[in-house]
Write a protein that binds this DNA or RNA. Sequence first.
DNA 1: ATTGTGGTATTACAAATTGTTATAGGGTGG
DNA 2: CCACCCTATAACAATTTGTAATACCACAAT
Lengths: 305, 305
Amino acid sequence: MTVAINNINIKSLEAFRAIIQTGSATAAGKQLGLTQPGISRLLALLEEHVGFQLFYREKGRLIPSDEALALVKEVELTLNSVERISLLAKNIAQSNLGLLKIVAPNSFIAGPLAEAVASFLQEHPQVNVSLDTHSPERAREIVARRSANCGFIQLPENHPGLICESIITSGTVCAISRQHRLAKNKKITPKDLDNEDLILLGKGRYSRQQIESIFRKKNISMQVKVETHTVAIACTFAKMNVGIAIVNELLAKQYEAKGLVLVPFSPAIKHEYGFIISAHAPMNRLTQSFYQHCKAYFSSNVSAL
Amino acid sequence: MTVAINNINIKSLEAFRAIIQTGSATAAGKQLGLTQPGISRLLALLEEHVGFQLFYREKGRLIPSDEALALVKEVELTLNSVERISLLAKNIAQSNLGLLKIVAPNSFIAGPLAEAVASFLQEHPQVNVSLDTHSPERAREIVARRSANCGFIQLPENHPGLICESIITSGTVCAISRQHRLAKNKKITPKDLDNEDLILLGKGRYSRQQIESIFRKKNISMQVKVETHTVAIACTFAKMNVGIAIVNELLAKQYEAKGLVLVPFSPAIKHEYGFIISAHAPMNRLTQSFYQHCKAYFSSNVSAL
DNA sequence: ATTGTGGTATTACAAATTGTTATAGGGTGG
DNA sequence: CCACCCTATAACAATTTGTAATACCACAAT
């Protein structure tokens, strides 16, 4: 061990401040939950460190010297600064602070994620969120290189720089106008859709391929009336009875309304979303907290699907 | 002893900063003059205190977490603040800093004190000085109640609220025009001054009473041509051969010039100045330092008088 | 494959620090 | 004079803070 009488001690500083504040070592001890001799020693230590008397002893009392009064302001600033560290640490520990950058498909944000984020923000009022949408390829890159904290993406997913956890699963429904003759069906099969006008989206995507392959297997040709890119638009056209949209139930849910009915598509096609983070580094606490929140949220609120 | 794992430790903070700065615990140890296990433990302590991991351990290396990066700025501010305390303490210890309030008679400031203060300021460049003049009574009050740090005053002095140390003694001289017939005398006695025009000052003051009593004893009447209040004016009139001034040698010294000669007055009358401080509190370090400086200065530079 | 280098964590131990209680002594007011 | 309130100090226990020794991992160069 070294000989250094070197380092300033926070406790000494606290004792010093407390003596100045209360006017006596005994009272300072009470304030700090220490005994008077303890305070006395902390003070002696500090005096040894600064190299001069901080109090002169008159009639057995401690009277602050001019030097002490000059020093105490700086000491108070320092102690406040230390307290700020504690406070900041507490906030970080509770994920009460910071910026959470999320990437997710627009439809996912508009659909299930919106409320999940909203409730998370309610629990962590000082947190800021940035929500961005990119192509799936770009989203993967952004998360892998940690330009965003996390993302939501449709499975399957096997990017080597990503860790992916399945977070929610959804079925497939036909969005269909209430006027349509099939609107009262319990389910709709490809056979039912033979010769029907269809509204499809996501050309080239995995989910679209699944649909196409099912029709191919049953040897039913698809009559695509409208080709679009968003669930919202597909549902809008379906509602206007332009045709029948085959869409992700989870994303379509919010557009179910007076004129629009959602009927399960058979055979079942599963859409699965994953929560992705970079494989290069563990989640930070805020992201972890958000992940836990989403898991809980999606398993309780959307399990009915 | 309490169980509290409570208080933040400055050393932990330093270790933390050093790890972030250098990138490894080993290097941090080198920087702080500690061993790697020491750093490792300080870090573990801090992590326990803040409640979350500051670094994740990857391939045996320490990689700062997002939380650590958020915290380190605040930590640096705090450490800077601690360093400021050390610096301030050092400056205070060396009396390099602060305001020194001095009261002294104008003639004393203009005379011997000016250079003493000037050389003190040269040694303590960051010190500021306030010089004020008051009546002797008021000066005593001001110092006693600590509105000034110290003062210089002519003895005798026995104010109960003051501590007084004799600091310099001076003789009495006749300031006399070179033209005057007595200018070549080795000394001047009251008898020499019989029927001479005199210039006197400080009516009612102790030193004036001493002069008057000497003349009275020798039964020589004084012919006071000019009554004034400052040595400077008395010497000015003497130089113009209006009369002979009987003045404090120490204060008159600086007016000695071509046309003005200072001749010792006999019998000797001593003028003694004291350094006064309040009896209610000890000198602060700056005042002590100044006191030491003055003692040394007056004993070496002015002992020839 | 093996070895050297450079990193971390853990253990066991020594020294210093930090707290305690007990005690002595000064000053003040009833 | 005594009770009371203050401070300083001593003696001691617990905790903290340092060290050296060691084990382990990853990587680069034989």
